[in-house]
Nucleic acid binder design. Structure first.
Lengths: 169, 169, 169, 169
DNA sequence: CATGAATGAGTGTTCATTCAT
DNA sequence: GATGAATGAACACTCATTCAT
């Protein structure tokens, strides 16, 4: 439910109230229960929606690995500008995952995929220590999630810094 | 209250319950109210305790700026290993700050100080774009907060990568 | 809610407990909150119910003012015998009005109407000092509220005494 | 305790808080418990203080019964102007007496004495139905308690009206 | 499908009272 | 005698959930 996603972006999971979600969606709170039997179901739906939107930015299949990395970071930057709520919710999810196994499972699978893709692209680009490089990218992206206005500069520096250590394909 | 801090690290602010904090501290929940009149007071105390612990890692006054940066990152790494809850709570705080003005004020002041110190150290080390460099450090540190086991490698790479672009004092 | 009214008559606003009202009504205390969002809402409902019941005794439109006064006092006397709780609650309300602006507003409006009607009826009957006469009636009625068994005699004497000073229409 | 009396006049028994009384008296709330073991003890002290202050207005021993009545009503009027809190607290007490046997006992004894004195004075003045006349006085006095500014006029009318039915000693 | 009345466990908070100092 | 930390029962209120309609 879109209303739930917006609500999480505004007040977080901590302040998520089923009645307010229903109000925002213009329906009765009982009707909400008709579509999502339990609150957890609604949360899971939000998780799936969020991770799905992010999956589209994975390093695409360009021939040049350095270009692939840049394209990926560019896609994230654009998303960060156009839909900052997406990143806000992701930050909420990371915290929620610590106590919610269902959320954790989804997030871990998604992050594993992301990590693998990043590692591959860095390795192909000849970056020494590609695994650690991938972790640095992941950490930096996660770290700017709540300050979207800093994302462009940080992503740019990140790309430069990593490309600088590349030996070429 | 130490019990509250531990509790936040375990279940976050979302799951923070005064009665459970009191139980963990081995006192009556009314006694907790005797010391902290309101829940917000307790939260504020946790915020102050947490930011206070972190403030001690600020780039120290060594002559060499590169050494100062390394020392700072080393201190963070050690803290990350010895008291990972400190970083977990910090992550919780960043989210909480979005809705809690009192928390936001404290956090913004602390982050401004951190940012200034980092920028200064990088500038002194001759790193071009010291402001963005500082943001990259901040983002990376924030990004590995919830995965403490990755911190050593990431911090190390970060230091290497930044020192590599330094022209020396 | 009728149960709340009865409860106020028994234990006053001081002792009014939502759970006890709900118990008396045979419903869950949460269900009570479903109908009256806040305790104040319930109190307001009791106030409206009480003043409404009393409004019906206003001096009716008989041709003879002395008869109108007697009819009014008779109506009050009957109410005092049949529903003494009504007067008990009124006494509680007068005290509550001192701290509760919402209650005060309702009570002041109702008392102003009562005062005006009494003054008019006394003036029409030729009683000198009709305003003070009205105050005497109001004071006497308020004063016997908590001793309903004395009401008949007092009301009777009041009517006699006032009619005695009337010069006729 | 004087502070308790003032507090009752302000917020009633409903809002009487031991800590606030202690604060108003400039002592610790535990110290208050030293002097009054329980809240009820404090309430009882307030009751005794209040009824004691009022007892002094009883119809004094003048030769003329009509003068005695007037003197009594005059004394009440003066008290009503100088210490309106005394009457406010009395109104609170009447309501409290309905649930508090200790208060009820004191109040009933005091009211019985007042009633007897009034009846005697009216009988001696030759007023027919002196018992009912006494009740009318009591009711009127109780009824103006919460509107002290009306007391002078009402008391005056009351005295006139009763004296008018007197046949003389 | 949708509604709204009903529920009960749980939340922060209050307050008179007790007790060691 | 006076203090303040400690207590536990009670309070109004919240919220996800259920159920009859």
């Amino acid at each position: 439910m879109q209303a739930a996603f917006t609500r999480v972006a505004e007040v977080g999971f901590e302040g998520l109230r089923l009645r307010q979600v229903a109000d925002a969606a213009g329906i009765d709170h009982s009707t909400l229960h008709h579509h999502f039997a339990t609150k957890q179901d609604l949360v899971n739906a939000v998780v799936l929606h969020t991770t799905g939107r992010l999956a589209g930015t994975a390093p695409a299949d360009a021939p040049d690995p350095v270009a692939r990395l840049r394209a990926h970071l560019d896609a994230l930057r654009r998303l960060c500008e156009q839909e900052p709520e997406l990143f806000t919710v992701t930050a909420e999810l990371d915290l929620r995952a610590r106590r919610d196994p269902a959320v954790r499972a989804v997030l871990e699978r998604q992050e594993a995929g992301w990590r693998a893709a990043l590692t591959a692209v860095l390795a192909e680009a000849g970056v020494a220590g590609s695994e650690v490089g991938a972790e640095l990218v992941i950490a930096a992206v996660k770290g700017v999630r709540l300050a979207p206005h800093l994302a462009p500069a940080v992503f740019d520096r990140l790309a430069t810094v990593l490309a600088g250590t590349a030996t070429g394909p």
